[in-house]
């Protein structure tokens, strides 16, 4: 009998769906609140066969995942996958290395170099993002040099060190004010949604509205290649439609999906549980 350890902090609707899916499959899930655990050599571990990392905090989730891996318990997603996907620049580099179409991007550490970088990726407008972060927080669309200087000065004065590594993407006008969130498990795109918004930031956490997106072969192929580029696992890919085809924007490794099961009529939570079982069985 396989036991899944669900590494969690606050329990969201997503985690409840995973618990329901596990119950339907008669799979035992041990809830492990990572905030109430200690991580040291002597710590007696819960008996689990696989850990599913679902912490809302990226930093704490990563440390917990590293700990369980050190005890030879497989973690979904692995720290290798999470280390790439939690950092937008590293994700972009992985996609570039694997020749997966992505938004023109770059990183620089000062305004002067940023200006050269922006010119090299096609000029303004661009989007500047913290390398680490989620839910559309602290994104800035930069339309000209004045805005660039203002934003960078604020980051330089107010930001933490990681905010002073300026990750920039070319701004892409989204087709019909929408982008695609594709749910990809082990390279297979199980379903996808369109995220519609009148705002240029389409995250559902920022009010974007979800509707079903039919997965065509081109979408499935680019998602499979992107999955391979970051080492697989359970991933949510943000995809932009362009006149030249799909391109990958970002890849998330602890995806939220509770608002996507209904429009796609897909039990994403069921796929997650099944994948965990598969990982446990292959160890």
């Amino acid at each position: 009998m396989i036991t899944i350890g669900l590494l969690h902090s606050t329990i969201r609707g997503d985690e409840k769906l995973i618990l329901e899916a596990a119950k339907k499959r008669n799979v035992t899930v041990k809830l492990i609140d990572i905030r109430r655990s200690i991580y040291c050599e002597e710590n007696p571990l819960n008996h689990i066969d696989v850990a599913l990392e679902r912490s809302v905090s990226t930093v704490k989730g990563m440390y917990a995942a590293y700990y369980y891996e050190s005890k030879n318990i497989p973690v979904v997603n692995s720290t290798a996958v999470a280390a790439i996907c939690e950092d937008k620049f590293l994700t972009s580099l992985a996609l570039m290395k694997a020749r997966v179409p992505t938004i023109p991007f770059g990183m620089a550490f000062s305004v002067v170099e940023l200006e050269s970088l922006i010119a090299s990726i096609g000029g303004y407008p661009v989007v500047i993002k913290p390398p680490e972060g989620s839910w559309g927080r602290l994104l800035a669309k930069i339309n000209d040099k004045d805005a660039l200087e203002a934003v960078i000065e604020h980051k330089d004065v107010l930001g933490t060190p990681s905010h002073k590594a300026f990750y920039v993407q070319k701004y892409i006008q989204k087709k019909q004010g929408r982008d695609i969130r594709a749910f990809v498990i082990d390279g297979h795109t199980i379903c996808a949604i369109y995220r519609h918004s009148p705002h240029w930031i389409t995250n559902t956490a920022r009010g974007g509205v979800a509707s079903n997106c039919t997965v065509d072969s081109e979408l499935a192929t680019i998602c499979k290649n992107a999955s391979i580029a970051v080492d697989g696992g359970i991933l949510a890919m943000d995809v932009v439609e362009t006149k030249d085809g799909y391109i990958i924007n970002e890849i998330n490794h602890t995806m939220e999906f509770k608002n996507s099961e209904m429009p796609t009529k897909t039990s994403i939570s069921g796929y997650i549980v099944d994948y965990c079982l598969q990982i446990a069985q292959t160890q």
């Binding site: 680490e132 972060g133 989620s134 927080r137």
Partner: peptide, 11 residues
Amino acid sequence: EAPKVEEDWGE
């Protein structure tokens, strides 16, 4: 009271 959203929260 639930904790406030922190900078590293998300997906």
